[in-house]
Protein backbone atom coordinates (compact mmCIF):
# COMPACT_ATOMS: atom_id res chain seq x y z
CA UNK A 1 0.00 0.00 0.00
CA UNK A 2 1.16 3.52 -0.63
CA UNK A 3 -0.58 6.53 0.76
CA UNK A 4 -2.74 8.08 -1.90
CA UNK A 5 -2.34 11.77 -1.93
CA UNK A 6 -5.25 13.74 -3.26
CA UNK A 7 -4.16 17.24 -3.93
CA UNK A 8 -6.78 19.88 -4.29
CA UNK A 9 -5.54 22.01 -7.13
CA UNK A 10 -6.91 25.41 -6.35
CA UNK A 11 -6.53 28.49 -8.43
CA UNK A 12 -5.79 31.27 -5.96
CA UNK A 13 -9.35 32.55 -6.12
CA UNK A 14 -10.89 34.84 -3.57
CA UNK A 15 -14.43 34.16 -4.64
CA UNK A 16 -15.27 32.14 -1.50
CA UNK A 17 -14.19 35.02 0.67
CA UNK A 18 -16.32 37.55 -1.19
CA UNK A 19 -19.35 35.30 -1.12
CA UNK A 20 -18.93 34.76 2.60
CA UNK A 21 -18.69 38.49 3.20
CA UNK A 22 -21.82 39.02 1.14
CA UNK A 23 -23.67 36.30 2.98
CA UNK A 24 -22.78 37.87 6.27
CA UNK A 25 -23.49 41.41 5.13
CA UNK A 26 -26.84 40.54 3.56
CA UNK A 27 -27.69 38.65 6.74
CA UNK A 28 -26.65 41.60 8.88
CA UNK A 29 -28.55 43.94 6.58
CA UNK A 30 -31.66 41.87 6.93
CA UNK A 31 -31.27 41.82 10.69
CA UNK A 32 -31.13 45.61 10.70
CA UNK A 33 -34.11 45.71 8.41
CA UNK A 34 -36.12 43.36 10.60
CA UNK A 35 -35.41 45.54 13.61
CA UNK A 36 -36.58 48.65 11.81
CA UNK A 37 -39.51 46.68 10.48
CA UNK A 38 -40.35 45.72 14.01
CA UNK A 39 -40.26 49.35 15.10
CA UNK A 40 -42.45 50.39 12.22
CA UNK A 41 -45.08 47.72 12.56
CA UNK A 42 -45.21 47.60 16.33
CA UNK A 43 -45.63 51.34 16.46
CA UNK A 44 -49.28 50.46 16.08
CA UNK A 45 -49.19 49.48 19.73
CA UNK A 46 -48.83 53.14 20.54
CA UNK A 47 -51.77 53.88 18.31
CA UNK A 48 -52.72 53.57 14.63
CA UNK A 49 -51.92 57.23 14.16
CA UNK A 50 -48.28 56.68 15.04
CA UNK A 51 -47.96 53.84 12.55
CA UNK A 52 -49.69 55.80 9.82
CA UNK A 53 -47.46 58.77 10.40
CA UNK A 54 -44.37 56.60 10.21
CA UNK A 55 -45.57 54.93 7.01
CA UNK A 56 -46.45 58.25 5.46
CA UNK A 57 -43.10 59.68 6.38
CA UNK A 58 -41.35 56.76 4.72
CA UNK A 59 -43.47 57.04 1.61
CA UNK A 60 -43.19 60.77 1.34
CA UNK A 61 -39.47 60.49 0.91
CA UNK A 62 -39.88 57.41 -1.34
CA UNK A 63 -38.07 55.35 1.20
CA UNK A 64 -40.71 52.69 1.08
CA UNK A 65 -41.03 52.64 -2.70
CA UNK A 66 -37.29 52.30 -3.18
CA UNK A 67 -36.53 50.47 0.07
CA UNK A 68 -39.12 47.78 -0.53
CA UNK A 69 -37.57 46.43 -3.72
CA UNK A 70 -34.08 46.77 -2.28
CA UNK A 71 -35.08 44.68 0.70
CA UNK A 72 -36.68 42.21 -1.63
CA UNK A 73 -33.46 42.04 -3.60
CA UNK A 74 -31.24 41.58 -0.52
CA UNK A 75 -33.68 38.95 0.67
CA UNK A 76 -33.24 37.04 -2.55
CA UNK A 77 -29.50 37.56 -2.66
CA UNK A 78 -29.15 36.33 0.90
CA UNK A 79 -31.22 33.33 0.00
CA UNK A 80 -29.06 32.50 -2.99
CA UNK A 81 -25.86 32.87 -0.96
CA UNK A 82 -27.00 31.02 2.10
CA UNK A 83 -28.62 28.29 0.07
CA UNK A 84 -25.12 27.14 -0.89
CA UNK A 85 -24.83 25.84 2.64
CA UNK A 86 -28.24 24.22 2.92
CA UNK A 87 -28.21 20.49 2.41
CA UNK A 88 -30.53 19.83 -0.52
CA UNK A 89 -29.30 16.30 -1.23
CA UNK A 90 -31.25 13.66 0.63
CA UNK A 91 -28.07 11.88 1.65
CA UNK A 92 -26.63 15.02 3.22
CA UNK A 93 -29.89 15.70 4.99
CA UNK A 94 -30.00 12.30 6.57
CA UNK A 95 -26.32 12.63 7.60
CA UNK A 96 -26.79 15.92 9.45
CA UNK A 97 -30.08 14.79 10.85
CA UNK A 98 -28.44 11.69 12.28
CA UNK A 99 -25.51 13.68 13.57
CA UNK A 100 -27.63 16.29 15.29
CA UNK A 101 -29.76 13.71 17.00
CA UNK A 102 -26.76 11.76 18.15
CA UNK A 103 -24.64 14.67 19.23
CA UNK A 104 -27.26 16.44 21.35
CA UNK A 105 -25.40 19.66 20.71
CA UNK A 106 -27.30 22.96 20.88
CA UNK A 107 -25.35 24.90 18.30
CA UNK A 108 -25.74 22.17 15.72
CA UNK A 109 -29.46 22.11 16.46
CA UNK A 110 -29.61 25.87 16.14
CA UNK A 111 -28.19 25.56 12.68
CA UNK A 112 -30.79 22.96 11.76
CA UNK A 113 -33.44 25.37 12.95
CA UNK A 114 -31.87 28.14 10.92
CA UNK A 115 -31.87 26.10 7.73
CA UNK A 116 -35.43 24.92 8.34
CA UNK A 117 -36.84 28.35 9.18
CA UNK A 118 -35.07 29.77 6.15
CA UNK A 119 -37.19 27.62 3.84
CA UNK A 120 -40.40 28.76 5.48
CA UNK A 121 -39.27 32.36 5.47
CA UNK A 122 -38.42 32.15 1.82
CA UNK A 123 -41.93 31.16 0.87
CA UNK A 124 -43.96 33.06 3.42
CA UNK A 125 -41.73 36.13 3.41
CA UNK A 126 -42.02 36.41 -0.37
CA UNK A 127 -45.79 36.08 -0.24
CA UNK A 128 -45.97 38.66 2.52
CA UNK A 129 -43.77 41.16 0.77
CA UNK A 130 -45.69 40.71 -2.46
CA UNK A 131 -48.94 41.41 -0.68
CA UNK A 132 -47.79 44.47 1.19
CA UNK A 133 -45.70 46.01 -1.55
CA UNK A 134 -48.40 45.62 -4.20
CA UNK A 135 -50.94 47.37 -2.04
CA UNK A 136 -49.48 50.76 -1.18
CA UNK A 137 -49.79 52.80 0.88
CA UNK A 138 -49.28 51.09 4.19
CA UNK A 139 -51.84 52.07 6.78
CA UNK A 140 -52.75 50.64 10.14
CA UNK A 141 -56.27 50.11 8.92
CA UNK A 142 -55.30 47.98 5.96
CA UNK A 143 -53.04 45.90 8.11
CA UNK A 144 -55.70 45.45 10.75
CA UNK A 145 -58.17 44.42 8.11
CA UNK A 146 -55.75 41.78 6.84
CA UNK A 147 -55.10 40.44 10.29
CA UNK A 148 -58.75 40.39 11.26
CA UNK A 149 -59.47 38.45 8.08
CA UNK A 150 -58.05 35.45 9.97
CA UNK A 151 -55.86 33.97 7.26
CA UNK A 152 -53.09 36.52 7.71
CA UNK A 153 -53.28 36.19 11.46
CA UNK A 154 -52.45 32.52 11.27
CA UNK A 155 -49.89 33.29 8.60
CA UNK A 156 -48.10 35.83 10.83
CA UNK A 157 -48.37 33.60 13.88
CA UNK A 158 -46.30 31.10 11.97
CA UNK A 159 -43.94 33.50 10.23
CA UNK A 160 -43.18 35.63 13.29
CA UNK A 161 -41.41 32.98 15.41
CA UNK A 162 -39.70 31.60 12.31
CA UNK A 163 -38.23 34.98 11.47
CA UNK A 164 -37.25 35.84 15.00
CA UNK A 165 -35.54 32.51 15.51
CA UNK A 166 -33.71 32.79 12.22
CA UNK A 167 -32.65 36.34 12.91
CA UNK A 168 -31.65 35.63 16.48
CA UNK A 169 -29.58 32.62 15.59
CA UNK A 170 -28.14 34.45 12.60
CA UNK A 171 -27.04 37.28 14.85
CA UNK A 172 -25.33 34.90 17.28
CA UNK A 173 -23.73 33.00 14.45
CA UNK A 174 -22.27 36.07 12.79
CA UNK A 175 -20.76 37.03 16.12
CA UNK A 176 -19.03 33.68 16.70
CA UNK A 177 -18.09 33.01 13.12
CA UNK A 178 -16.29 36.30 12.67
CA UNK A 179 -14.64 36.23 16.03
CA UNK A 180 -16.54 39.17 17.54
CA UNK A 181 -17.51 36.94 20.41
CA UNK A 182 -14.76 34.78 21.90
CA UNK A 183 -14.87 31.60 23.94
CA UNK A 184 -15.22 33.55 27.16
CA UNK A 185 -18.16 35.63 25.96
CA UNK A 186 -20.04 32.90 24.16
CA UNK A 187 -22.30 31.73 26.95
CA UNK A 188 -23.29 35.22 27.97
CA UNK A 189 -23.92 36.32 24.43
CA UNK A 190 -26.07 33.29 23.72
CA UNK A 191 -28.20 34.12 26.73
CA UNK A 192 -28.48 37.71 25.65
CA UNK A 193 -29.52 36.57 22.20
CA UNK A 194 -32.17 34.19 23.53
CA UNK A 195 -33.68 36.91 25.65
CA UNK A 196 -33.65 39.31 22.69
CA UNK A 197 -35.45 36.75 20.50
CA UNK A 198 -38.05 36.16 23.18
CA UNK A 199 -38.64 39.90 23.59
CA UNK A 200 -39.08 40.35 19.85
CA UNK A 201 -41.57 37.51 19.64
CA UNK A 202 -43.56 39.01 22.50
CA UNK A 203 -43.59 42.45 20.90
CA UNK A 204 -44.70 40.82 17.63
CA UNK A 205 -47.54 39.02 19.37
CA UNK A 206 -48.65 42.17 21.11
CA UNK A 207 -48.61 43.92 17.74
CA UNK A 208 -50.76 41.23 16.21
CA UNK A 209 -53.17 41.47 19.15
CA UNK A 210 -53.33 45.21 18.67
CA UNK A 211 -54.20 44.71 14.98
CA UNK A 212 -56.80 42.12 15.93
CA UNK A 213 -58.57 44.43 18.33
CA UNK A 214 -58.15 47.60 16.30
CA UNK A 215 -61.50 49.07 15.40
CA UNK A 216 -61.82 49.02 11.63
CA UNK A 217 -63.18 52.15 10.01
CA UNK A 218 -66.54 51.24 8.52
Amino acid sequence: MTIDITMYVRAPSRISAYLDWLQMLTGAGLILFMWSHMIMVSSVILGPGVMNALAEFLEEYYMAQVGGPIVAFIFLLHFVLAARKVPFRAEQQSTVWKLSRQLRHTDTWLWMIQAFTAMIILIMGSAHMWTVLSDFPITAAKSAARVQGGFWLVFYLILLPMVELHVGIGFYRIAVKWGFIRRKGRKGFKRFENILTAIFIVIGLVTLARFWFLALPK
Binding site: S16, A17, L19, D20, K85, L103, H105, D107, T108, W111, R173, V176, K177
Partner: peptide, 9 residues
Protein backbone atom coordinates in the same frame (compact mmCIF):
# COMPACT_ATOMS: atom_id res chain seq x y z
CA UNK B 1 -12.42 28.65 6.60
CA UNK B 2 -15.27 29.93 4.43
CA UNK B 3 -16.90 26.54 4.46
CA UNK B 4 -17.12 26.54 8.25
CA UNK B 5 -20.66 27.39 9.31
CA UNK B 6 -19.80 28.13 12.91
CA UNK B 7 -21.52 25.06 14.30
CA UNK B 8 -18.98 24.86 17.11
CA UNK B 9 -19.35 21.13 17.57
Amino acid sequence: IFGCMGLLG
